[in-house]
Design a protein around this nucleic acid. Structure first.
Lengths: 327, 327
DNA sequence: CAGGAATGTTTAGCAAAACTTATCCTTTCG
DNA sequence: CGAAAGGATAAGTTTTGCTAAACATTCCTG
């Protein structure tokens, strides 16, 4: 249990110590000399410790007073700086913005968005925590995060009352495709995209959300218990992309992550006739949280940036194109 | 001018933050929920900043709250530790004792006295500031020192009103002698201790108080304007002692500082027939200062140690003996 | 599903502070 | 020596912090 004296008295003490004078402190605190004198006396009796030796004109701090001051002075300084920063942040975005995100999106796009934001508002710093909804939503609940970017499909498996405190806003639909290198598709698949043929292939499994491959087959062929040949299972997107590029096998990826390779035809999304799975990335926040200026400004910036980013505007065309080609 | 909010409200905020609960904070602070709720609201309006997002059961700190807490939490911790130390020091001597001393005395004897004291009271630490009365007495006045050991003769030149706030207590009389090595005394002085002969010798000047040599001749021969041949002028007592031991010349020193050498006859105090100059080392304190337990205990220890130290008990015999031998 | 327990907010009233005014004491300085 | 300046003290007033009570909401439990 907290056992500390009246902190306002410590503030008075601080002023007395700095000015070495009751009258001076009174002036600084905009109260009468009498009030300061009384406060000091009360503090001394509370602490059962004499803090100043009264010496006619001036006050001489005792060893204990010096000890106290050594604790209080840095705090007062820190507090003044901190409050100034908080007040400042009401006119210009400043301070720390704590962002949570899914791994791929966070690693791939957020740093650039942070950078462009910081170039306009250099007093803002960011913390970026990566993880899935199961990790990030509690982060919002416990106040470690201001906003979180999560895969919406993950929230669909959570109990509705768990989602109650949050608000969600769709940010982008990312297209989930099964893809392999052109070489792999022509040589190993022989461009035969039938389920039977696909079931015989090699696969690279990206293991952050776990169920990507299963979901893909469920969606496109309504098959859930396929025994696929996983030749690489990794948590590293880099490793997955390298695996595909080097003809190791097929993998489920978000198409925008391989935007350039798909455009060039170096990587081929497997067409199935059905529309691609759309995984919605949502912006999650605490429902009742009133965003401060920094957060508000960043969210505006964020939405603008996302809209202007080609990979998000264009990917539907690409794969629709691919789909059309097959139809 | 100090521009910080009501510190007690910050204490309440701290409790709320730690427990993530108004009710919890109320329990810890031994007040009602209502009071805590009101305090928090006032703090938020004062700061014009929302600190918590109200979420049904729990409170979720905002970024600003986290900033604030990052400032307050260490302070609360420091304060608790500091106050515990201060309270502790009322039953067992503890904390810092700030001692000022003349150079020679401080360097030579205080470390041992500090050490013996600390072996009984290991929670006490010391700061030792060396200097003359002109430096140390202001240290007392400004609260940087608790006690000061000064050469009394230096205070005799100060205005009485300057000495008003202090109390003095004689600690030891140190005997100021002009001394040289036995070899120097026999070979260079030919054991002729007359003023005329002394005026022709080489001298080492120890320059902390400046006037030692002048004073010695004034006292013993009532001569004030001698033009002595200073061959080494230094602020280092080590250097002075080395100079004497290596037959560089004569120097004024406190006899107890060369206690062993004088006993063995390796260093010889110049006899003049007159009694030696006695320089009184006094303990100076602020008159009105009430000593705390640590200070009181140390002063008792200090007086006991000084009395038991042979060099202070014995030096009068030594030099009286030397004086007698000449008479 | 209803009702009780727990959490937080709000309002009104009261009691405990903190503050002010006035007076006194001491030292310092012209 | 008297005025000025710093501080302590006493008494009275004002502020404000706290409690009590009532309300709203959510959670849990029989």
């Amino acid at each position: 249990m907290l056992n500390i004296p009246d902190l306002n008295r410590l503030k008075v003490f601080y002023c007395i110590y700095v000015r070495r004078s009751v009258a001076g402190a009174a002036q600084e605190l905009n109260i009468t000399q009498s009030a300061v004198s009384q406060q000091l006396k009360k503090l001394e009796t509370e602490l059962k410790t004499q803090l100043f030796t009264r010496l006619h004109k001036t006050l001489v701090p005792t060893s204990e007073a010096q000890q106290l001051q050594a604790i209080i002075a840095p705090f007062v300084h820190e507090l003044e700086v901190g409050l100034r920063a908080i007040r400042q942040a009401k006119s210009i975005p400043a301070g720390e913005l704590r962002v949570g995100s899914t791994h791929e999106f966070g690693k791939t796009y957020l740093p650039r968005i942070f950078a462009t934001f910081r170039s306009r508002y250099p007093d803002v710093s960011f913390t970026l925590q990566l993880g899935d909804a199961k990790r990030l939503l509690p982060g919002l609940l416990q106040g470690q995060l201001d906003i979180a970017l999560i895969d919406e499909y993950l929230t669909q498996r959570m109990a509705p009352e768990e989602l109650n405190p949050f608000s969600f806003e769709k940010i982008i639909d990312e297209e989930v495709v099964l893809a392999g290198s052109r070489e792999y598709c022509t040589e190993r698949l022989n461009n035969d995209f039938s389920l039977e043929n696909l079931a015989l292939q090699d696969y690279v499994s990206y293991h952050h959300d776990g169920l990507a491959l299963t979901n893909w087959f469920k969606h496109h062929y309504n098959k859930s218990a396929l025994d696929l040949n996983i030749v690489l299972e990794t948590e590293s997107l880099q490793a997955v992309m390298n695996g595909i590029q080097n003809h190791l096998g097929l993998s489920v990826i978000a198409s925008h992550l391989a935007y350039d390779d798909i455009r060039r035809g170096a990587i081929v999304p497997i067409p199935t006739g059905k529309k691609a799975i759309l995984n919605c990335i949502s912006l999650a926040r605490l429902q009742d949280k009133v965003p401060n200026l920094t957060e508000k400004t960043f969210l505006a910036h964020f939405r603008r940036e996302v809209q202007q980013t080609g990979v998000f505007r264009d990917f539907l065309r690409i794969v629709e194109g691919a789909g059309d080609a097959q139809n």
